[in-house]
């Protein structure tokens, strides 16, 4: 198909641009992972509902469980492994210590393009 060479080459150029487009769009500017910053209140407290590693992995599932427990069963008390009792509340319990939602929650969520729908209903007390 010697007559169609220009069309085929145009197609190949589009193919190469499409495959390599993330490299063009980023223009070589590396964006390292954000560093998580803990609020002074959280550091002062020294403990969370679960150990740090578990919180990092499972915080979304804990919150989901809390939501279901509070909304569907009216059960508002969470008891952790050490027998500590917590009020199941995102705005009151979590954000009481982690006062810096923008630094503590949003940074990583935005970087990983995770859009939790917590804030569809909840308000950040700081932002009122």
């Amino acid at each position: 198909m010697t007559n169609d060479k220009p069309k085929i080459i145009a197609g190949l150029v589009i193919f190469v641009i499409l495959v390599t487009c993330p490299m063009w769009i980023n223009m070589g500017k590396n964006k390292p992972a954000p560093k998580l910053e803990m609020a002074a209140e959280a550091q002062a407290k020294g403990y969370c509902v679960l150990p740090k590693a578990d919180m990092k992995e499972k915080h979304m599932q804990i919150l989901d469980g809390w939501r279901n427990s509070v909304v569907r069963s009216g059960q508002r008390v969470y008891v952790n492994d050490q027998g500590k009792r917590f009020d199941m509340s995102l705005s009151n319990t979590c954000l009481e210590c982690h006062t810096n939602k923008a630094e503590f929650c949003d940074k990583c969520h935005v970087y990983a393009s995770v859009n939790p729908y917590c804030w569809d209903c909840h308000v950040n007390p700081k932002e009122k």
Partner: peptide, 19 residues
């Protein structure tokens, strides 16, 4: 499995920015 998405993105961003 629970994987660290933020760490993975750091790896993949490094790949596409040649760093």
């Amino acid at each position: 499995a629970r994987v660290d998405v933020v760490a993975i993105k750091e790896l993949t961003m490094g790949l596409v920015t040649f760093k």
